[in-house]
Design a protein around this nucleic acid. Structure first.
Length: 558
RNA sequence: GCGCCCGUGGUGAAAUGGAUAUCACAUCAGUCUUCGGAACUGAUGUUCCGGGUUCGAAUCCUGGCGGGCGCACCA
């Protein structure tokens, strides 16, 4: 039985004996000096009983007596009961980490469930910008969290390879005779098309016409279209390789739009949708949202209709119990309307199709828009960070691994900066000021891991092996944090919030580095050295597993 | 105007309704550099404003103020 249930049960029994029937809640005090667990039962029930909370807490403590594995119980503050775990419990905790190894932190609370995580969603013919970097990073981490809950997961990508943005890009390509196999040329062509569409009525007509022809499957456009689509997709794959993401499945808008139209037309007959100014719309007002167009007056499907087709396609390929789609906050209200339409079309699907909004990347230099062409591409950001990492590694003897390590560090820095806060919050990004390698950062976590590995390497050559039998008397802050890892994972899994993991890792890295600075870990003359080595190993394992959840690699050297 | 999200030191963030609000950057002052200084130690400095709920509020409710996003044929 773990300590948490053991203590909770003991408190529960003691308070029941005193006539208290409040279910005790056990938590970790924010301040480590306050102990490892604390409960506020006394505070919660004191008033009802007309008693002084501190006195009541004292009574409960007396009733509690001794608990195996708890060294000290005291009453503090307004009436908290604090529990300090004993030395041996922490030693056992270290043992547990070492035994679990790669599996340390995993659980199976979603085992047997089929779950789809849809993320990244870059559009061919448009640049892969830092917004996609966010979706990819957040989605990959959520996928890994879901994977750790024992569920059957499918990582899915959904890409818009048909629609007005494609027409705009192709128009731009044809006007200038650009090379459709060049990513840079496609990006420029898109900006030309998007600008012309707004400023030039004639161009708008031409683009609308191209759009119509694309939906009709015009053979003349096919070679150009195929070349551009392939160039885009190849480019995305290169980025995914660097980012450490691999999808199980990819669905394209071109595969779902027809089905989407059919679903909407059918829904129109059933009264789910309505006609308005020649378009087919969903009146979101009936559920507190707003009206959205599903089929345009030109009879083209919008994003919303395609999404309905997508849902069917997903069910066909992988009948999911739960779907999580990452969506940018600026698209969240559209998504809500789609969910509302779904609920009316297929009441049975209620609650199985969900989304997780992630914040916008706000630029200090003004709003980023791929229509205007002032986007920061994922590629350029990675490139900048890679150059910075290379400069930092000057003088390190890493041989052939140098370039790959620079990528690892660069990607780690980018991902950390995205995953360190609430996923829904906007991130303010200053393109002039590159991401940090110091302090709270991805490289700081990676560096801590490298240090620990380096210590373990030295232990190995000194013929010292990890042992938990002879721990030093004093319990380190690091030990008092490490055993909490599985709790942190569960919370992150339940809320689809990777940042709990990020924060935890930053805490243990700080604890490790402080400890490291004041301890000689590998020391043949120190009887506690084998224990310290075991602790170092437990730290390295926890850090490695945690970084994996974030989708950040843990290098051995950097 | 309506809807959603947000407001924490100079800056970027954290805090299942709990105790003295925690980190990092920057600034200032330091560190036997022996196991990797991408580190460590210390100092300065913070919950937008008003009201309410609660033993207890950054957190919940309410009214302001300020910001972001969305509000029909783009995604």
């Amino acid at each position: 039985m773990d300590m948490q249930t053991k203590i909770t049960d003991a408190v529960s029994a003691a308070s029941t004996a005193l006539g208290i029937f409040e279910k005790p809640v056990l938590e970790h005090p924010a301040e480590l000096s306050h102990g490892d667990y604390s409960t506020n039962v006394a505070l919660v029930v004191a008033k009802k009983r007309g008693e002084n909370p501190k006195a009541l807490a004292e009574k409960i403590v007396t009733e509690l007596g001794a608990i195996d594995g708890v060294e000290k119980i005291d009453v503090a503050g307004a009436g908290f009961i604090n529990f300090h775990l004993s030395r041996s419990v922490f030693a056992e905790g270290i043992q547990e980490i070492l035994s679990a190894g790669e599996k340390w932190g995993r659980n199976d609370f979603l085992s047997g469930k089929k779950i789809i995580v849809e993320y990244s969603q870059p559009n061919p013919f448009k640049p892969f910008h830092i917004g996609h970097l966010m979706s990819t990073t957040v989605g990959e981490s959520i996928s890994r969290l879901v994977e750790w809950s024992g569920s059957d997961i499918r990582r899915m990508n959904y890409q818009g390879d048909i629609g007005p943005h494609v027409a705009k890009c192709l128009w731009g390509v044809m006007k200038n005779g650009s090379d459709p196999k060049s990513i840079a040329a496609l990006g420029e062509a898109y900006v030309r098309g998007a600008t012309a569409y707004e400023d030039d009525a004639h161009a708008k007509k031409e683009i609308d016409d191209i759009n119509k022809r694309l939906y009709a499957g015009d053979v003349e456009l096919q070679p150009l279209y195929d070349a551009g689509r392939k160039a885009s997709l190849d480019h995305f794959d290169e980025l995914y390789a660097i980012l450490g993401t691999r999808f199980d499945d990819s669905i394209f808008e071109s595969e779902v739009w027809k089905r989407g139209i059919a679903i909407v037309m059918d829904g129109l007959m059933r009264g789910v949708f309505a006609e308005s100014d020649g378009a087919v719309v969903f009146k979101g007002e009936k559920v507190g949202l707003h009206t959205r167009v599903f089929i345009t007056s030109q009879k083209n499907p919008t994003y919303e209709a395609k999404e309905l087709g997508l849902i069917e396609k997903k069910l066909e390929r992988f009948p999911f119990d739960l779907n999580i789609t990452t969506v940018a906050v600026e698209q969240e209200s559209y998504f809500r309307v789609v969910e509302a339409a779904m609920a009316e079309l297929w009441p049975k699907t209620a609650g199985t199709y969900t989304h997780r909004a992630f914040g916008m990347l706000q630029m200090t230099t003004g709003k980023m828009s791929s229509r205007k062409g002032n986007v920061i591409t994922g590629e350029s950001l990675i490139e900048d960070m890679r150059a910075k990492a290379m400069a930092k590694m000057e003088g390190r003897e890493l041989g052939d691994a140098k370039q790959a390590t620079a990528d690892t560090v660069a990607v780690g820095a980018i991902k950390y900066s995205i995953l360190k806060q609430n996923a829904g919050k906007n991130i303010i990004f200053d393109p002039e000021q590159s991401l940090s390698f110091e302090g709270d950062s991805g490289p700081y976590l990676q560096y801590s891991h490298v240090r620990a590995r380096s210590v373990l390497e030295k232990a190995h050559t000194s013929h010292l092996t990890p042992q938990i039998s002879n721990p030093p008397e004093e319990v380190t802050e690091l030990e008092r944090l490490l055993y909490r890892f599985p709790e942190v994972v569960v919370r992150a899994q339940k809320e689809y919030e990777p940042h709990y993991v990020t924060t935890f890792l930053t805490d243990i890295a700080g604890a490790f580095n402080s400890w490291y600075a004041q301890e000689q870990i590998v020391n043949k003359d120190d009887p506690a050295s084998p224990y310290k080595i075991a602790l170092t190993k437990a730290f390295a394992q926890t850090m490695k597993n945690g970084l994996w959840l974030l989708g950040i690699q843990a290098p051995e050297k950097m």
